[in-house]
Amino acid sequence: MYYPSKLRSAVAALLFVAGIVAAFQAGYFGKEILVEIALYALLALSLDFLAGFGGMVSLGHAAFYGIGGYAYVIMTMEAGVPPLAAMALALVPCFAAGWLLGIVTSKVRGIFYIMATLAFGQMIYVFTFQNRMLGGSDGVAGVPRIDLTAIGIDMNDPSIFACAVVVATGLVYLVFSRILTSSFGRTLVGLHRNENRMRALGLSVRWYKAMASGLAGTAAGFAGTIAAQHTMFVSPGMMDWTTSGEVLIMVILGGLETLIGPVVGAAFVVLLKHEISEFTNHWHFFIGVFLIVAILAGGRGLYGSLEAGVARLTRRKSEREQEPGKTTAQKNPEAGNA
């Protein structure tokens, strides 16, 4: 079960403040990296919601990123919808596609679920790639940004834009944190732990899977609408299955089933990518090595290891305070992540 423990909230607040400061203090290139981190953080935390908490390991998450981006582009550039409304409306097809994928795959588990989502993602990718109306392999350029000059906010100012993206990421984090502590979130974790028992307790499993998939897809699509405005460009490349794989790597390197961990993972991978690119363009190699080391080390990831360490310390402390022998397997729900 998910609990927004003090440690999680503290790390989240720290990252948020760091993001806001960076939005105003960093140079032009730094701001670009910041937005990239925030976009990957959105993808990673929504994938953690689905894969870490819900047990549905998807390799097609990037498809929703693309659907969101393209839906925003079609609405603003073809249908003439005002950008702000388009951003909201673009979430509808994302939720619908995620919901449908969830319904269709509700009985598919384990590696077969991974394959099914991979197939779904590639289908969307290939379809876009080969569709002339959507710009084919070239994509679409000249995407407009939302216009908030009416309330005195200039989205074309890189600092303002980066700041807005960080705030949006923070809000999505809060929403998912809230959903995970809701009845639905509890049910989702229960489904992950023992789907069979949930059914035997009377739950209609597939509606919950569909909803989880829809929500995760919506958040990824939301990231897509921001990405389209950030680079003012969309292309099929944003939906490649290796993008989904990279997001999964971020989730693992940060800490599966912790919600804040994947955000840490996104920041780590993006920064590492840019640092390594300074002296070699073989960053794939290093990410691959990091990933394998992280998995062999137990697969807790950066934040996950921190949390486990803190939990061990507090347990040792409470054991020393209590009578010896009385603290068997007591678990502190604040520190636990199950």
Partner: peptide, 29 residues
């Protein structure tokens, strides 16, 4: 056929919530 990773209380409360149809909310626990 239990929920490994959940506590006894969490498991029982979840089972009760399912029976009492309190599993829909995305906001309240």
């Amino acid at each position: 056929n239990l929920f490994d990773g959940l506590t006894v209380g969490e498991s029982l409360r979840l089972a009760l919530a399912i029976k009492r149809q309190k599993t829909f909310s995305l906001w309240r626990d």
